[in-house]
Every structure is written in C-alpha cells, then in structure tokens.
Amino acid sequence: MIKTEQLTKKFDKYVALDNVSCTIPDGCICGIVGSNGAGKSTLLRLLTGIYKPDSGSVFIDDMPVFDNPLIKSKLAFVPDDLFFTPGATIRKMSNLYRSVFEKFDMDKCKSLAESFKLDIDKPISTFSKGMKRQSTTLLTLATNADYLFFDETFDGFDPIVRNYVKSIICEDVLERKSTAIITSHSLRELEDVCDKLALLHKGGLILQSDVDNLKTSHFKVQVAFPFEYDEGIFNGFDYKRYQRIGSVSSMIVKGNRDETAAALSKLNPIICDILPLTLEEVFSYEMETLEYNFDISLTGMEG
C-alpha cells in the first residue's frame, strides 16, 4: 500500500505539492489527473523516491521510500522524460535494468518487444517518439515490480498502441496483483482503465475515489410533471446544476440510482429519464460540491 502524509515539495519558492495525503491500496490501477503544473510528476517522483520531500512522508508497505533500496526494488517508473544510455538498444537497456532490478524478466522483455514489433538490437535513437515510450514501458513491465508508475505514458501513442498498453498494464495488475499508478492530463484516457482516480490541482489533492463508485453514484435526471411545480418539489434529493426549460427540469443527482428513480416515480412524472454521467461531468459535479471554482474546460481534462 502506498501512503502519503502531509506531503509537501517546494522548488525554491514555488510550492509544487502542498500537504498531499492519500492512500493507494495494493492491486489497483490508480489514475492521477491534473492540469499542467498540477504536481502530478512531482508526486510520482516523490512516490518513487527520486525527490526527497520537504515535509511530510511517503510510505510504501509501511516503509519510507527515499534512498531505500528495499522498497525501490519493488518500484519501477516510466518518466515523462525518457532515459536511454548513449547508443542504447533495447537489449543493452535490458542489461542495465537487469543489473539493478533483480526480478527483471528477459523473456518477458523479448516477448513484449515482439508484441510491440520492436527490434531489440536496433539503436533506440532511431526509434520514433512513440516507439521510445513503448521501449521504456516494456522494460518497466519486465522488471516485474510490485508498483508500477507511469507518468504521461500514453502521450505519443496512437490509439491502437494506447489501448494495447492499457491492456497489458491491466493484465499485469490482474496476473501479478501489482499496483499501477498512472498520471495523465486527460481524464478520458484513464477512465476506462483505472479503479481509482485522484485529482490534483495547483499542488493540492482535491479528490480521490473509486471510479465505479463515482460513476454509479452520480447520474443525470430529466423529469417533467403534468402540473405546475417549482424547484421545491426536489427537496430531499442531493442534486446540483438544476435547470428548467418549459416543464422539463434537468439536474445531476448524487445517490442510489434505484432509490432515486422510485422516489421520482412517486411524484407521477410524465417524463423521467435517468442518464449516466461521463467522468468529466462527475468530476465537475464533485468540484462544485467541494466549492471549488473549477472549470474543467480550462484544465485540459476534457480530453
């Protein structure tokens, strides 16, 4: 389990991460979303022990991470800025990985390279941006680390590769019960792969929750009644963004879907549609709940 407590990191006077406390259970895929400069990469570097926190702490399996090889042997990291030694090929890089990661699986590395259609003896410098990212991804997966960290990993992948990478990450988590933490500025990239989602904004952790929970507990209701009514009729519902056009009212309701449908039907509506929400809409709703003046269109999260 990954746990952070009051985690703060500053770069000179700039606060990149401010009092972030969170918990990521084992065996899940956790997405961290946020706009540019939100602190996603800083958080990952703190979680992987690259940066030393200015205050607060990071624990993985109840042990501190920074300069701790015991814990770091359980971690593998795909950074946004990729590293290859001069003149490296996948084979040479795998030798480097093998020299530091005891559980590195060369067969898995070759197999993944084959599935990515990458030549392991070809200089990586000749690869395209996407192929380079594929190379680091497959090397990281071949470490068989318990905790896998991916920073903006899907950038530069075409849709097919993106889906394939998602599938192999899921496969790895399912098979080995590993934990994956993926950052992205695009919520849509993560919603179909993550179990948990966290939202970072301006260095602060705004929200973290299970994706299923988020999706099932929030829905859009469109309802019309054969009589004159006002908004007071919805007292007792947890809703936001109420709008009325003519006799049709729409709102976002948080709660149990069946119970809400039953309660509405008791009011004898002539129209009653309960629609699922996209994650963006859910996030937007939650932001308002938390009284954040948060315009999702400005964060780049609309995908």
């Binding site: 570097r45 992987t48 022990g49 690259i50 090889p69 015991l70 814990i71 770091k72 042997s73 359980k74 971690l75 593998a76 990291f77 950074p79 800025d81 990729l82 590293f83 530091v100 990661f101 005891e102």
Partner: peptide, 11 residues
Amino acid sequence: SSSDFYHSIPV
C-alpha cells in the same frame, strides 16, 4: 531523465 532513472533504481 537520467537523473530520475538513477535515483529511482533500487540501489
């Protein structure tokens, strides 16, 4: 990139 790599390895 290289600094991150070397500081993330289990050594």
